[in-house]
Each structure stands twice: as structure tokens, then as C-alpha cells.
Design a protein around this nucleic acid. Structure first.
Lengths: 190, 190
DNA sequence: ATGTGTTGTTTGTGATCACAAAAGAACGCA
DNA sequence: TGCGTTCTTTTGTGATCACAAACAACACAT
């Protein structure tokens, strides 16, 4: 999810097991669960690797993010108090640091933390789980994107999200979330 | 997915293995994959059972169905030719038979086949997989609903979907799909 | 130099086992 | 009869093994 593994990287059961000091059996379970969620792809011979997404699939996943996360944000809006907004701003500051540090994995992790913190207020665990499944599928590919990212500013739309939350502006919030979600992935396809 | 298992029914690894004449290992894999998709719930002690959904969760899953399936239908619309519509009508006829026969499982299976047939035209495998994950989570609960269903007519909104497809009416199609998806689940919550 | 066949290694699969925790049954006591 | 305790059984967990399929490396022939 955090892009620590590059797209297309193959994994072996024995390798994963050795990495976490367990036998093949638990490694198999974990790998199979991740493949069930689409985080790993299973070749015809049973070998697993991190997926290399086609442009079509990236577009699909971006559309899914837009659909689900806009809904989550909308549901979170009525419950968003000042403490939540403070927390989001704090996370945003950390994101700026990660950008300075050129820490792509940290950037992705905190970016998702920003979104998750907001969506947790929606009190919609099934939807949140769905959104995280999409994040899981996009993880390796997002790393490939943000790795070659050379911007210096923290994400533009995060500020829009925060001000829409402050203003209680639901249409503005929906638009800001949709833009934030779509923005980065447009670069990948283009 | 088809509601063959009642909500809350416990499953054992050895039991599943015996049912399919395999050892515990493949049974474990299958069960764990299904739990990863939310089709089965994992108790704290590692025991698995089919989920008993709260009203809040049913509402969430219905909202997810509405979001994703409306989008899928919308994407399928431009590619929907007459052969597809014929097939949908044929499935609809089978649904009527299942209702006559009071075959709840057959009814659910064919209802999902109706939707899947339409959505396959959307050429959006990731979205379709997402929709099927939601179906999987709702399966046992839907059985509990349609089991006590005493209507005699085939689903009302299926006809609306078909006529919207024929007319190329996108807003009408979106509304019909949303209504069809929401309809049954409202009864569960109410 | 390239294609092809062969060999040696890696890898996933399914089965079985030992063990500990949990659930259920049996029992005794109030 | 109701309830707590003990004992038996069931159940998930992680490890290990044998096997076959897939892969990689290499040598050979064209």
C-alpha cells in the first residue's frame, strides 16, 4: 500500500516466510489474502508478483477512488469538528517535510493517513475497507509516480479539502476530494 | 454469494476440507481468501462464520452497490447492443420461473447474473470485481430476505433498466439501477 | 550467432503432524 | 433445578515433507 515494493516485483512464499521468520504456511496465507484483495497478482503457474497496472486499470481505480472517497468525505462532513481539522493540518505539515526529504514512501503513507483520518469520521467501515483495498492495488504504481515527482509544495487540494470542511461546504468538499484523488493519477496515464 | 449459507453459520477448516475432499491446507486458503474479501468473518479465536450484518452495515453496502453499479451501468450503456438486451430479457424470464418455483437461491443467482451480464459490457474488470465483493458480503443476508419474499412478479426495475438501455437514456438508466439495488435492501433494514 | 534440447534448481501444492487454546459436555454441589 | 468446575473433544496454527511443474542455465548442433 505504501509503495515499498516496485511494480512487477516477484515474491516467493519461501522468501516472504524467511523475511518474517515464519514457515511457508503463514506466508502463504498472507500472500493469498493479498491476492484476493487485488494487491498481488497470481500468474497462471501460481507465482505471485506485485501488479503492473495498465492505463485502463489505473483509470478504473482512480474512478473508484473518486466514487467511494467522495461519498466517505461527504458522510464525514457533518461530524468534522475542529479537532479533526487540526489533525489534518498537522498531517499536512508532515507531508511537506516528507517532500523536502524526498521520502516517497513516507509521502504516500502520510497522504493516505490524511485521507483515512478524514474518512474515519464517516463511521462507514465497509466503505473505508473498500477504499483501502483500492489503495492496496495502487500502492506499487503510486510509488513509481511519486518517486519521480519533483514538486516542492504540499498537495494543493488538501488545503481545499480543509477549507471546505471548515466552511461546511459539501459541494466544495466533494469537488476537492475528487480533484485530489484524480490529480496524481492523471499524470500516470498521460 | 448466492445465499446458500445462512447468516451466522459457523464453518470449520476440517469441515470445508471434508466437503470438497481436500486436506486442511487448501480449505484454509479458500476460507482465508473469502475472509479477506469480507465474505466471512473471523472471530477473535480464529473461527470463521458467515457474517450477520447490522442494519448500518447493510445500508453501507447498499450505498456501495448504488455507487459502483450505477457507474458500471453508465459505462456499459454506449456498448449495449440488441444482443445484450435480448440476453437480459431472457434472464429476466428465468427469474420469473424461479419466483414461481419459490427457489430463493436460484432467484438470487439469476438476479446477479442479470447485473453481471450488463456490467461485463462496461469493460471495467476492477469495478466489476469490487461489485462482486459487495455481493459476496451480502449473500447470506440476501437469502434471509428473499427467502420470506412472497411477490409473484419479476423484479420491477429490471424492466425499467431494459427500456432505458433501449432508449439510450442514461439518467433513466442510472435511476433504474440505483432503485433496483436499493429496493430489496430497504426491506431488510425496515 | 541463434535456436534447441537437456539438466539442475527453484517454487507452489497438498498432506500430515504436534501443540495449545477454545468450546462443549459431563458432572457434582448447592 | 440452577450454576460453577472439570474433563473431553474440537479447532486453528505453524512446521515439515514429498512431489510435480516451472524456470534458468548451459551445452550442443545447425
Amino acid at each position: 500500500m505504501h509503495g515499498e515494493i516496485a511494480p512487477g516485483q516477484p515474491l516467493t512464499l519461501r522468501g516472504v516466510g524467511a523475511e518474517f521468520d515464519v514457515s511457508m504456511t503463514p506466508a502463504r496465507e498472507a500472500v493469498r489474502r493479498l491476492t484476493a484483495e487485488g494487491a498481488l497478482t497470481l500468474s497462471s503457474s501460481g507465482r505471485v508478483s506485485t501488479p503492473e497496472l495498465s492505463n485502463d486499470r489505473i483509470e478504473e481505480l482512480a474512478a473508484l477512488r473518486a466514487l467511494i472517497e467522495v461519498e466517505l468525505a461527504s458522510r464525514a462532513l457533518p461530524r468534522a469538528h475542529i479537532a479533526l481539522i487540526d489533525r489534518l493540518q498537522s498531517i499536512n505539515a508532515h507531508i511537506a517535510e516528507d517532500i523536502q526529504r524526498h521520502d516517497a514512501v513516507g509521502y504516500i503513507r502520510r497522504n493516505l493517513e490524511f485521507h483515512r483520518t478524514l474518512y474515519l469520521r464517516a463511521q462507514a467501515p465497509a466503505m473505508l475497507a473498500m477504499a483501502e483495498t483500492v489503495w492496496l492495488q495502487l500502492g506499487p504504481t503510486m510509488r513509481a509516480l511519486y518517486g519521480k515527482l519533483t514538486q516542492k509544495d504540499p498537495p494543493h487540494y488538501h488545503r481545499l479539502i480543509i477549507s471546505a470542511l471548515k466552511a461546511g461546504d459539501e459541494p466544495g468538499l466533494r469537488l476537492a476530494v475528487r480533484s485530489d484523488v484524480t490529480q496524481g493519477l492523471k499524470m500516470l496515464v498521460g
